[in-house]
């Protein structure tokens, strides 16, 4: 089943290299909060790359920087072999909450992100039909988001991100507010999408079993904003969520995580 190569060497054509990335927020009281401290990240073309970490570490900040919504303080980003400003990275963003316009239909929500691009009406139409088909919501095009279940709304969010045809899909804990059954369905559908579209996915989660189940590579961030561990997940696909081998990997990673947290807290 595994016919994808794990892109760890970083010499793929469309890979992303982030080097020396730092970000500090100044809080209201004037206190400085380092959320990303000299991060180096390499994501290969088509890789499923997961960033794990406790709440409050810089996971989401990393995604927001890559999405171009917040500026970085320091660092370089290289894409497809040349330096690039994060605002120019070809990304689609799936958020923790669906973040849909509740006053627009499912179809209009997808169309919204297409209008700004140089596309003809028929091209836009084709995209909308395509992406709704991909996430299994072609029948709900005229529905308003508040009439859909949480899982369906999250699917609309995924469709919207796919609509801009990004090479890179940024996903910020997209399934964390769903019930486990719905989340499992969506995870499997996401893996199918990943396989069929060959997109690079940068996925953020605090759920270790989700990370192990989905990813090719898991990177751990700590509360100081540093990467302290990186692991390739080499289990064959399709994986079973409750497979003992996966659980073993999860346990080992959790141990690494807690050992590390203990050392930084004792300092």
């Amino acid at each position: 089943m595994v016919n994808r190569t794990i892109a760890s060497e970083g010499d793929d054509l469309m890979s992303i290299h982030v080097t020396n990335l730092s970000k500090t927020f100044t809080e209201d009281e004037g206190e400085e909060l380092v959320v990303l401290d000299d991060i180096d990240v390499t994501v290969g073309d088509g890789e499923f790359y997961t960033v794990m970490g406790p709440s409050g570490c810089g996971k989401s900040t990393l995604l927001n920087i890559l999405a171009g919504t917040i500026p970085m303080d320091r660092g370089e980003i290289e894409y497809a072999g040349s330096p690039i400003s994060p605002t120019d990275l070809p990304v689609g963003y799936v958020f923790q909450e669906p973040r849909l316009l509740n006053w627009r239909t499912v179809g209009e929500n997808v169309d919204l992100v297409l209008r700004e691009r140089d596309l003809s009406k028929s091209q836009r139409e084709e995209r909308i039909v395509d992406v709704l088909e991909m996430v299994g919501l072609h029948d709900e095009r005229e529905s308003y988001p508040l009439r859909l279940s949480g899982g369906m709304r999250q699917r609309v969010g995924i469709a919207r991100a796919l609509a801009v045809d990004p090479s890179i899909l940024l996903m910020d804990e997209p399934f964390s507010s769903l019930d486990e059954l719905t989340a499992r369905n969506l995870r499997d559908d996401l893996l199918d999408l990943w396989k069929s579209t060959e997109k690079t996915i940068i996925f953020v989660t605090h759920d270790i079993s989700e990370a192990v189940y989905l990813s090719e590579s898991v990177t751990f961030l700590d509360t100081r904003g540093r990467i302290f561990h990186q692991s390739e997940i080499e289990h064959d696909r399709p994986r079973e969520p409750d497979d003992p081998a996966l659980l073993e990997t999860e346990a080992a990673l959790m141990k690494t995580f807690f050992d590390h947290m203990a050392t930084i807290q004792s300092v």
């Binding site: 171009g68 689609g92 963003y93 316009l101 627009r104 919204l112 992100v113 209008r115 700004e116 801009v164």
Partner: peptide
């Protein structure tokens, strides 16, 4: 007005006109 929606709009590079028309006014 939800800051999260505005962040979404920025991440998808929506124009100011689009933000007013599709987010501010309807909200």
């Amino acid at each position: 007005i939800d800051d999260d929606l505005l962040e979404m709009a920025h991440s998808f590079d929506l124009s100011t006109t689009a933000i007013w028309r599709h987010i501010f006014v309807p909200a």
